[in-house]
Design a protein around this nucleic acid. Structure first.
Lengths: 204, 204
DNA sequence: AAAGAAGTTGACAGATCGGTACACTTTCCA
DNA sequence: TGGAAAGTGTACCGATCTGTCAACTTCTTT
């Protein structure tokens, strides 16, 4: 399969799986929605689950690329970037394609921790945590590892809540919480960076 | 179907769906794992999805009953109860049956918001939010609705993270964040209840 | 232009899917 | 005790599932 054909398959399969779910969308439906023959698919992917794994890897690459780039363009300082993550997420929540996180869903449909689909999903989350930990370290907070994990909880909670209860207000709720946590962690931080933070509460 | 037989079916179906997923576990597998004939199942549930809905309703009842009861036994004051929610969740995270939340998974496998399975899942989350809002109101925080939503984000994030990255440490991360949020909200609260909080930071 | 690579089409295999039907067995109750 | 209710077991239906195959078409490269 040419690289462009393979990429086209993965892009279109990603859309189909996001819309309908991994189990619910079968190979015949994929043929219809991608316009690529089943024989071609099986030339490049040994099984349907191999295809799903490749789709998740593509999604990981695209999502993390988008998230980091979007955050970088929304804010320039580390603290600003930690908060900007929730602004970026909010943009995603309000797209019409938004249906929770493909990795949360993959680990839901494939809950067995020995399964490759689950492992790829878990790896995605670890990579995001690493990135946020880096921002937290740059921000000079007292416990960047703890803060990063907490912000990740807010992020995952925001995703699930936006999908199950609707996206409106989720960004505000999460961002206010993030501010409080970051502020609290900065107040205790021993580094000079913290001195740039006003001694008042976070903005209302 | 007698009430006891129906309940037995729902209990065993709940276990099967939790372990393997709603789509992945078919009716023939359910027959094997519940010991109840397919004819009996279809006497009481028009479709497989009706059965799934009933399973989710049972799970909602059991889980919320357990959560409220567990929280009540872990703490007596509203602030303590808000924090105790994360201790209760941690117990659940470390059970061998834990595989994320059945409602998160249901809304993942049935992402269409018009679908009944999705609706039952969303309703479950609203009921939990209502309960936590009640605790936050009793706690006398400045903005109980916002705090409750934030604690819900932490709760949902904790569930997803415990499933995808393992349960260890999640309770601590979430509870510390909850303490910070509650403390910050109490410091601003105009009610006399807040005066019982020491003017120092939350416990380390 | 020709050969090889890549892809398509349609049929197929074997399995599984949700759901139904029917003959039978077991349980319950008057 | 007997009839009704409830449940079981098995076969079956039509549809769909993943995956394979063969004959063919299209594209690419030499």
């Amino acid at each position: 399969m040419s690289r462009s054909k393979r990429n086209e398959l993965l892009e279109k399969a990603l859309i189909a799986f996001n819309r309908g779910g991994y189990y619910a969308v079968g190979m015949d439906r994929l043929v219809k929605e991608t316009g690529i023959s089943k024989t071609s698919m099986y030339k490049h992917f040994k099984t349907k689950e191999d295809l799903i794994e490749a789709v998740l890897r593509l999604r990981d690459e695209k999502f993390r690329g988008w998230l980091v780039g979007r955050i970088d363009s929304l804010a320039q300082d580390p603290v600003g970037r930690l908060l900007a993550m929730f602004d970026a997420l909010d943009e995603w929540f309000h797209t019409k394609e938004f249906r929770s996180c493909m990795f949360i869903r993959a680990s839901s449909e494939y809950p067995d921790s020995n399964h490759q689909v689950y492992k790829v999903s878990a790896e995605h989350k670890r990579l995001i945590l690493n990135y946020v930990t880096g921002l937290a370290q740059q921000a000079g907070v007292e416990d960047p590892i703890l803060l990063a994990k907490q912000l990740l909880l807010l992020k995952e909670g925001a995703i699930v809540t936006a999908h199950m209860l609707g996206p409106d207000g989720v960004q505000h709720t999460a961002k206010e919480a993030a501010k409080t946590l970051i502020y609290a962690s900065l107040k205790k931080a021993p580094t000079p960076l913290a001195e740039s933070i006003p001694q008042s509460a976070p903005d209302a």
